[in-house]
Amino acid sequence: MFLNPFEYHRAGSPQEALDLLNRHEGAKLIAGGHSLLPLMKQQLAQPTALIDIGRLAELSGVEKQGDSLRIGALTCHAELASSGMLATHCPILAEAAAKVADPQVRNKGTLGGNIAHADPASDLPAVLVATGATLDLMSPQGVRQVRAVDFFVGLLETDLAENELITAIHVPVLGQGSGSCYLKAEHPASGYAVCGAAVVVELGADGNAAAIRLSFNGLATTPVQCFPVVGALTGTDLADEAIDTAVNSLLSVEDPLGDIYASGEYRVQLAKVYCRRALKIARDRARG
């Protein structure tokens, strides 16, 4: 498979990247290239020019800012998976990053690239929704913030405008009394999630669930949150039987995705199984 010709420009700063993007109609940004290059090989994307932002050090790394973590958009999956900062303050993102594809892909693929691609079978979008993440989108007009839940709008479609660049992802620190878990049923060949469940549980002083956030990938074109299950379990002590009952009776998805590998009905069944397991693990982690 060969790529169609295109122009190539390497940006020396985020501002230069935006400027290059503005000057080249049909241009795309490239970082690790692990979402974009496969699309280009299949001729599903045919940019006229690639603007390489892969070396912008200011867009990489994890740092704590008050009660949230700022993750540079260029941080690769291997860095997320091994980040001590994430292990302490947002372990679900490290857990999920360690499950993306394989070691070679994790060495190159970036968080920003992953979410800009917005594959419904990707691991990280659902995790960002479950953690309540916010994204910084930079354009010549400045930086605007968008909640992860609002960012994913359809199949391979996001709120990112053509003149914008994702610079950072902010995830709230998961403090004492919180527990989280990401589990997936993975496609045996590709490693993509057939269905994945991201769960964050926060226990109150009484040991009951003060807040629960659920998000699934693989079920619809964008991450699915299941509010009836959340409503039924919030305020309870998250006993195994309560979790099983709530998930089995209340988890439903209208018109779920289906394909040759897994029908929609089967995916919803997988979601129930992985949701029950992930809720129990997150609960146990929250209890310490």
């Binding site: 190539y8 490239i30 496969p38 690639l50 892969g54 291997a78 070691p103 070679q104 060495n107 190159k108």
Partner: peptide, 19 residues
């Protein structure tokens, strides 16, 4: 197609030579 780039294993079919 795995090679090392700056000491880390990467898939050289999914990298541009210019990168």
């Amino acid at each position: 197609c795995t090679v090392w780039m700056d000491g880390e294993a990467v898939k050289s079919c999914t990298q541009l030579a210019v990168q």
